[in-house]
Structures are given as structure tokens and as C-alpha cells.
Amino acid sequence: MLIEIRWHGRGGQGVVSVSRLLADAALIDGKYAQAFPEFGPERLGAPILGFTRISDAPIDIHSQIYTPHYVVVLDPTLLKTINVFEGLVENGSAVINTDKSPEEIKQEFNIEKFKVYTINATKIALEILGRPIYNTAMLGALVKASNLVSLESVREATLKRFKGEVGEKNVAVINKAYEELEVS
């Protein structure tokens, strides 16, 4: 089955990198994958999108993603400015960086038809990386929520893309987010 993931963040938060990390991990798992940026201007701080496709069969399609199975929101402030849930399929999932609970988000946005997972990725990133870069924390959370790829492959892909201490710290972030995300 072809699974489509849409990443929401702001320019400079590593949206494109994390969309690629997930694809890298899927490839390590022996699946087919595709990751691409939003085909728009790259502007630091502006809301931007990243996309990942994962499938057991070769992926023919090369359009943007309109009806994702997962949306991942890296930056909590985006919830107020754009509709991050647009096109999300029924029974799909939203994984959101926020200090609120899934119930609070569901209530706030009148969500009934899909699942919501929340995690305080900002806190994890600041604790471990000392910088407000939440992309890898959200990757850890998505992996826990979705089981799309194995955690081991995500670690391997991360260490390949980020060398040395940066890699190690990001793996710690991923592990922590994976542990902390509550799946009911």
C-alpha cells in the first residue's frame, strides 16, 4: 500500500531533511520511498511543506500529496495560521508538536474522523540538542505512532546523514520522542 506523509514546518526547521530521513529509513527497510520538498520558494521562517511516500511496490506517481495518511506538524504556531489537517484521509493521523493533550487538540479543532497524537518535541529538542530544532523528535514520534518504518532503520539513516556528535544527539532525540509519545 502507498502511504503518504505531509510534513509541516517553517523554512529552516529541517522539514526537507526529515522528509528525506524517513524515506532513507524506509529504503533501509527494503521498501520503496520518495521524499520531496514543496515546489515553492524557500523562505526562512515561512510555513513550508515536505512530503514522503512509502510503498511496498515501485512508486509511479510524481505529483504533490493532496490526501495524506499522516500529517506531522513540527511547529506548534502553525496550527493557528494554516489548516494543517487539510486533505487528511479518514482514520488518518496527525502527529503534532505541542504541550497540549490529543483531547485538547481534538476539541479545539473539532476533530472526529482521524487520530491525533501530541508530543512536546520542543522540550525534548531543547533538552538534548540545546536548540529549537524539532524535526528529528517529530520523526521519532511519527515512527511510534505509525510503525511505518523500524526504529532501528531510522537510527541508521540518521547516523548516516548527520555525522559524529550531531548524529548521536539526534538519535537520542528520536529515542526520547519514541518513548514519550503516548499511543492508546
Binding site: 524515506a23 532513507d24 521524499a35 520538498p37 515546489f39 510524481h62
Partner: peptide
């Protein structure tokens, strides 16, 4: 190769 659609997309 199509700009961005292929040039900037990762595939295995």
C-alpha cells in the same frame, strides 16, 4: 529530468 519533481526528490 524534471526540475524539482525529480532533481530535488529523493528516491531509492
Amino acid at each position: 529530468l524534471d526540475g524539482f519533481i525529480l532533481s530535488h526528490s529523493i528516491e531509492g
